[in-house]
Simulated assay, not measured.
Amino acid sequence: MRREEKKALAIFGLVLFLWMTDALHLGWFGVEISAPFAALLGAVLVLFPRYGVMQWAEAEIPWHLLIFSAGAYAGGLALDDTGAAEWGVRMLFGGMDLKGVPFGVSYTVIIAVMMYSHLLTTSKTVRTLILLPIIITMAKALGWPPIAFALPAALCIDWVVGLPISGKPNVILFSTNQYSVADNFKYGVLTCTLGVILLVVSGATWFHWLGLTPSFWAVAP
Rank of each mutant, 00 (worst) to 15 (best):
A141E: 14
T82Y: 01
L92K: 02
V109W: 10
A154S: 15
P133W: 14
A153Y: 06
G100T: 10
T125L: 11
H118T: 15
T122Y: 05
I111S: 03
R127H: 08
K124L: 06
G104I: 13
G75R: 00
W144E: 05
E86K: 10
A139L: 12
I157N: 02
L79R: 03
M115F: 11
M115I: 14
T82P: 01
A85W: 03
G83N: 07
L77P: 05
A148T: 12
R127L: 12
T128Y: 02
R90V: 04
Y107L: 04
A74Q: 00
I147M: 09
A84W: 01
I157Y: 02
K124P: 06
A150H: 02
P145Q: 12
S106V: 09
H118P: 05
G143Q: 09
T128H: 05
P145C: 15
L120H: 12
A153D: 10
I147N: 14
G95I: 02
T122S: 13
L129H: 08
I110Q: 09
M96Q: 11
R90M: 03
F103E: 11
T125V: 13
L98H: 07
Y107R: 03
T137G: 15
W144H: 10
H118Q: 11
G100V: 09
I134H: 13
D81S: 00
L131R: 06
V113A: 11
L155N: 03
W159L: 07
F149M: 00
P145K: 15
G100K: 07
L79D: 05
E86A: 10
F103I: 08
M96G: 07
R90A: 05
A148Y: 02
L77W: 04
L129S: 13
G76E: 05
G100W: 08
F93K: 01
A150W: 03
D97G: 09
A85M: 07
L120C: 12
G75M: 00
A112P: 11
L120S: 12
V113N: 05
W144S: 06
R90T: 10
L155K: 00
T121E: 11
L98Y: 06
P102F: 09
V89F: 04
